[in-house]
Amino acid sequence: MFETDALRLLVAVAETGSFTGAAARLDYTQSAVSRRIATLERQAGGPLFERLPRGVRLTPAGRSLHRHAVEVLGRLARAERELAVLNAGQGGLLHVGAFATANISLLPSALRALQLARPDVEFVAVEGPTGTLVRSLADGTLDLAVVSDYPYGLPSADGVTTTPLFDDQLLVALPPDHRLAPEPTVDLRELRDEAWVQSAYGDRPTMLADACARAGFSPRKVIRIAEWTGKFGYVAAGLGVALVPSLAARAVPAELLLRPLTDRTLRRTVHVALPATPLPAALKLGELLRETDLGRPARGA
Rank of each mutant, 00 (worst) to 15 (best):
L10T: 10
A12V: 15
V13T: 10
A14R: 15
A14I: 08
G17M: 15
A23C: 10
L26T: 08
L26R: 12
Y28A: 13
T29I: 07
S31Y: 06
S31G: 09
V33P: 00
R36I: 05
R36A: 11
R36P: 10
I37L: 08
A38C: 07
L48V: 04
E50L: 02
R51A: 10
L52N: 06
R57I: 05
P60W: 11
R63K: 10
S64H: 04
L65N: 03
L65G: 00
R67N: 00
V70Y: 03
V85K: 15
Q90R: 13
L93I: 12
L93W: 04
L93H: 15
H95F: 08
V96P: 11
A98H: 15
A98V: 10
F99M: 07
T101L: 15
L107H: 09
A113H: 08
A113T: 14
L116A: 05
A117Y: 01
R118N: 12
R118Q: 12
E122V: 07
A125D: 12
G131F: 00
D143W: 07
L144V: 05
S148F: 14
G153A: 10
A157T: 07
T161M: 04
T163M: 12
P164V: 06
P164W: 04
D168I: 06
L170P: 09
L171Q: 04
P176H: 01
R179N: 11
A181P: 02
E183H: 14
E183S: 13
P184M: 08
T185P: 01
L188W: 05
R189S: 13
L191M: 02
S199R: 15
S199W: 15
D203E: 11
R204C: 01
R204F: 01
R204G: 03
T206I: 07
A209E: 06
C212A: 12
A213M: 06
P219M: 02
K221D: 06
I223K: 13
W228H: 10
W228Y: 14
W228K: 11
G238W: 01
V241T: 03
P245A: 08
P245I: 03
L247H: 15
L247Q: 06
A248H: 02
R250Q: 12
P253G: 02
P253Q: 02
A254I: 04
L257G: 05
P260D: 01
P260Q: 07
L261S: 09
L261H: 05
R264N: 15
T265F: 07
A276S: 14
T277C: 12
A281F: 11
K284P: 07
L285S: 14
T292N: 02
G295T: 08
R296T: 10
